[in-house]
Computed example of a mutant assay.
Amino acid sequence: MTDARLTPSNERVAAAYLEGQVDAPRYVEGELLQCTCAAADILGKPGGRRTSQLLFGDLFNVLEVHKGHAFGQSVYDGYCGYIREDLLGRAEDATHWVSVPATHLYPAPHLKVMTQGALYFGSEVSVIGIEGTWSRLSGGQCVPSVHLQPIGERRKDPVAVADLLLGTPYLWGGSSRYGIDCSGLIQICWRACGRECPRDSDMQEQDIGHPVEMEDIRRGDLVFWDGHVGLMTSDSIMIHANAHHMAVAYEPLEDAIQRIDEAGDGPVTSIKRPE
């Protein structure tokens, strides 16, 4: 059985590489576009609930546009769904990425002018010029250069990245400083370190690392429940985006295990050590 989250096919169209694997009225190569807003919701269906997000600069292979929504597949993690057509635009080659939790967009390289929005950690941008301590982006806005890193320079420690996002509000399907869920936090930490990472916690449990025993747990390990994941910051404390705190928060692992079990969400299903 195919996983709809990773299968670019609906009742009208499918990706060309799926011909012979899924039935569809037509098969297309698609058009590569990018997210042009701070964060764009990926929906399970037009008008449906958020299942994930694209950040500014993220690439999305559009297979069709139908009634104001583009159906396609995220290039980074293969996640499929629907995005409002007006939130996508021409793809550009990124030169830098936002390496702080958030940065403001300024119409000019001056800190006292009124801002024109924001970009979140992990967003990829195209810098076309340097003006003093400011970087001018291809869209014309400026951001502080200290908030950017070259696209090829990545972080080394996912736990340190998670620490940056402490206090971020919980948001189902969220992937940014504006709001994030448990697996979104893990994905953005891995991506900031130049590592591949699937979107949802069940995928992460299957694909990341190798199992370890509870008595051997250490900083950097991932702890999984059915539908939830946390990242160990030591041998006893984890950081996770969770609906109990409604935020990215630290929590003693023993407390989380007891609380989650008492809430009826079951025991730890595995502990994985990234390789």
Rank of each mutant, 00 (worst) to 15 (best):
L88C: 07
F71T: 01
P144I: 00
G132K: 11
D93Q: 15
G57I: 08
V143H: 00
G89D: 07
T168I: 11
D157L: 06
L165H: 07
A102M: 14
L171A: 05
L148E: 04
E124K: 12
S145W: 05
G81N: 04
L148Q: 04
F121L: 12
L111E: 09
F56V: 00
K112W: 05
L137G: 12
Y82I: 00
Q53G: 03
E85I: 03
L148V: 09
L87T: 06
Q141N: 14
L63E: 04
S138F: 04
A102N: 08
T168V: 15
G68E: 09
F60N: 01
W134Y: 07
K156D: 14
K112P: 00
S52M: 03
R90A: 14
S135P: 11
G122V: 14
G72Q: 01
P144K: 00
P107I: 09
G117M: 08
S52D: 13
A70R: 01
P169H: 12
Q53R: 03
L105P: 08
K156Q: 15
R90E: 15
G122T: 11
M114S: 12
L87A: 08
H147N: 15
L119D: 05
A94C: 06
L54E: 05
V113G: 01
A160W: 05
P109V: 04
V143N: 10
D58P: 06
S126K: 15
V161H: 02
H96K: 07
V98I: 15
Q149L: 09
V125S: 06
A70K: 01
K156A: 13
Q149C: 04
Q116F: 06
H66N: 10
S123R: 09
Y170F: 15
L55R: 12
C142P: 06
V161W: 03
A91K: 06
A94G: 04
S99C: 14
E131G: 03
A91Q: 12
I83G: 07
T103G: 02
S123Y: 13
A118M: 13
H96M: 10
E131I: 02
Q53S: 11
L148I: 08
H104M: 12
A70W: 02
R84Q: 11
S123E: 11
Y170G: 08
D93R: 13
H104E: 13
M114Q: 14
R154I: 00
D163S: 08
G139K: 10
G122F: 10
R154T: 13
R154N: 07
C80T: 13
L87K: 11
K67I: 00
G81F: 12
D58Q: 08
P144R: 03
Q116N: 10
Y76E: 14
G129L: 02
A102S: 14
